[in-house]
């Protein structure tokens, strides 16, 4: 649901946003009127009125840092023409309708509430998948920047620009496709707790393995190789790692694992199977059928960190 929202809403919300920030109050009212009509929400708006304005401000500040949001803003630029075209109309309509000022006011507050609601959703979703999705979005966003630069100019478009264009059109026309892809990416963030001063517990390690459909051993190998440490799964199926790590750090490594060993390198679908063939691992995608080899997990050079005396005693 929420994923779908984030895919769908952008245009809607953007419009709202854009109008809000760039146009003056009148415009906002007008706009509020038209949108409010469409949404036909009613009832307890008044109860929430007092709180609404403050969250709205927060939202804006947060938005700047939020990748997912940024993308939306960019898209706004896209819709600007439409908006501008649409605005005069709504103004005219609203001039006629402006007798009911109270209702108009309510509607604007309603808008604010909308923002705060979506914000909350956003905040909750600090899941890994969300982060991965953000990464993807960022890439898309970057492309979008370049995309339309040739529109007004004489210069020829490049292949990349056309490619971006066609993908954007595809996404626009098939929102389900985009939404469907993202929906599968629901995963809880890793629960990371420190044990004492020297060890870290990754409590839902096995659960995450299950969500990713990967052998715990494979993920374990990767984690330990990347973090350059040792560890094991204990009786409560939690992973105990030597050293101090924060959730954010583990999340980073997990994200890299997902990128390399879970999502399809061609279509990014997480619906994949990891197979071992001779010495190599292959990632077989169930969505697009692509099959490619993935990097083998190597811890590479390991420096001597233990007590040298003990090692000497062992080997001697």
């Amino acid at each position: 649901m929420t994923e779908e929202d984030s895919v769908f809403d952008p245009t809607l919300k953007k419009k709202k946003k854009k109008k809000k920030t760039t146009f003056d109050l009148d415009a906002a009212f007008n706009e509020g009127g038209s949108i409010g009509d469409a949404m036909e929400t009613s009832g307890d708006k008044e109860n929430q009125e007092p709180e609404a304005p403050v969250p709205a401000e927060d939202d804006e500040a947060l938005d700047l840092e939020n990748f997912g949001r940024k993308k939306k803003k960019k898209k706004k630029a896209f819709n600007l023409d439409e908006l501008d075209a649409a605005l005069p109309d709504t103004k005219k309509e609203d001039v006629v309708e402006q007798q009911t000022e109270e209702i108009v006011v309510d509607d604007t507050f309603d808008l604010d509430m909308d923002f705060s609601k979506t914000k909350k959703k956003k905040k909750k979703k600090k899941d890994l998948d969300e982060l991965v999705a953000e990464e993807e979005r960022k890439e898309i966003e970057d492309k979008e920047n370049e995309e339309t630069s040739w529109v007004g100019s004489d210069r020829d478009y490049t292949y990349d620009e056309l490619l971006v264009r066609v993908f954007n059109i595809m996404r626009e026309k098939n929102p389900d496709m985009v939404a469907g892809k993202k929906q599968k990416f629901v995963m809880r963030p890793p629960q990371v707790v420190r044990i004492g001063t020297k060890k870290t517990s990754f409590a839902n390690f096995t659960e995450i393995c299950k969500t990713l459909h990967r052998q715990p051993k494979h993920l374990l190998d990767f984690l330990l190789a990347e973090l350059g440490t040792s560890g094991s799964v204990d009786g409560n199926s939690q992973l105990i790692i030597k050293g101090r790590f924060q959730q954010k750090q583990i999340e980073n490594v997990l994200r890299r694992y997902i990128k390399e060993y879970v999502t399809c390198h061609t279509c990014r679908s997480p619906d994949t199977i990891l197979q071992k063939d001779t010495r190599l691992f292959f990632l077989q995608c169930e969505t697009c059928g692509s099959r490619c080899s993935v990097a083998s997990i190597k811890s590479g050079f390991q420096a001597v960190t233990g007590k040298r005396a003990a090692i000497r005693a062992k080997t001697a």
Binding site: T197, K198, L227, G228, T229, S230, K242, G243, R244, R279, S296, K298, S299, G300, F301, Q302, A303, T305
Partner: peptide, 24 residues
């Protein structure tokens, strides 16, 4: 499958005692 020849420079962190680390 050693990666000596993959042309990459691998920069790794390794855990030592407690919060101490080293970089290879």
């Amino acid at each position: 499958d050693d990666d000596v020849q993959d042309g990459l420079v691998h920069i790794r962190i390794q855990q030592r005692n407690g919060r101490k680390t080293l970089t290879t």
